[in-house]
């Protein structure tokens, strides 16, 4: 796990911009302005397979271990992802 985009003990704000970049670049629907309220399925046209790929991209982009399915299944908005990734990063940093 090398070359993290951010220093350890990351905050939500530090995570947010990278999450936005990944979610935006992976999105089937382009040209949508991103906000915490933006929904993955309705606004960005993610389908089940692309959501799995997004999970992969987040794990690899942030150097995280596999995000549990119980957590990824609860995600509907960009804000949800920011919170999920920030929590996972804090957990990683604490190890």
């Amino acid at each position: 796990m090398t070359s993290h985009p951010n220093p350890p003990c990351p905050t939500e704000d530090a995570t947010r911009s990278t999450v936005y970049a990944i979610v935006g670049a992976m999105a089937p629907m382009t040209g949508v302005e991103l906000a915490d309220e933006t929904t993955l399925v309705a606004d960005l046209a993610y389908d089940s397979l692309r959501l799995i790929e997004l999970t992969l991209a987040l794990e690899q982009g942030f150097g995280l271990p596999e995000l549990p399915q119980e957590e990824t299944a609860m995600v509907t908005t960009l804000g949800d992802i920011v919170r999920m990734v920030a929590a996972a990063r804090r957990q990683e940093a604490a190890r």
Binding site: T2, A25, A57, G61
Partner: peptide, 11 residues
């Protein structure tokens, strides 16, 4: 996508 965003980690 990750390469384009310059997020390509060793993993």
């Amino acid at each position: 996508v990750l390469a384009r965003l310059d997020l390509t980690g060793a993993d």
